[in-house]
């Protein structure tokens, strides 16, 4: 989603545009439209979550208590921090500080990778505790009957939601890697840094998704 047509030309803007401003505005609007799509993409999952939580409130509460609240909360802080450094990336690009831009992009990527590492630890623990939906799923419950199946639905949604989110983060990290490479080559100047800005929009959006996943998955259990 970088400024299209920009990559190999030395011109200030791609030939389908009239001027650089038009190109910049088009790239930004393009990313916003893409994020709208993403809202609905995750929105389907959030709707599924809401429906099943409405149908099975007790099982969802109980299942949510099995998530790792401490690691989840730390991870939220990590991702918020990465959003902060991403905002600083855009500022560094805007003010034309190349070294700072490269360093901040690397830091943001590291924070993203850190998030994934912590998430991986959580997943490993949950799989070990037989919380991965499927034949190995076990959920000893205080409620008789259906509760196990209903709790399994929570974990289906948990793994799909966090999995799709993690996939978005991986894409974001790769994207920032490409940007860091080009930034090191000096491609971005204070009068042209649209790719950094647009990638930033994406990164912040991935953060926002987590801002909603965190309370829905970790906090609905109520006091533990």
């Amino acid at each position: 989603m970088k400024g299209d047509g920009m990559a190999e030309s030395t011109r200030a803007f791609a030939e389908q545009f009239d001027d650089p401003l038009q190109q910049k505005e088009a790239a930004q609007a393009g990313m916003w439209v893409f994020l709208v799509t993403e809202v609905l993409f995750f929105g389907a999952l959030l709707t599924a979550y809401t429906v099943y939580r409405h149908l099975y409130p007790a099982a969802f509460r109980e299942a949510s208590r099995r998530t790792d609240l401490a690691l989840g909360s730390i991870n939220t802080a990590v991702l918020l921090t990465s959003s902060f450094t991403m905002a600083l990336c855009v500022h560094a690009a805007k003010t034309g500080r190349r070294a700072a831009l490269v360093a901040l992009l690397a830091l943001t990527m590291a924070l993203g990778a850190g998030f994934l590492a912590i998430k991986g630890v959580e997943w490993a623990r949950e799989i070990h505790e037989h919380l991965l939906p499927g034949p190995s799923f076990e959920f000893p419950s205080a409620y008789p009957g259906e509760a196990g199946r209903q709790a399994q639905l929570f974990f289906v949604l948990y793994f799909v939601m966090t999995g799709v989110h993690a996939l978005h983060l991986v894409i974001g990290i790769v994207l920032l890697g490409v940007l860091a490479f080009f930034a090191a080559l000096g491609r971005y100047r204070s009068d042209y840094y649209t790719p950094v800005e647009v990638a930033g929009l994406y990164w912040h959006f991935v953060d926002i998704v987590w801002i909603f996943l965190y309370p829905l998955l970790y906090l609905v259990g109520g006091p533990r």
Partner: peptide, 9 residues
Amino acid sequence: LFASGFVML
């Protein structure tokens, strides 16, 4: 644009 996504959702 952004608002339209949330309205829809």
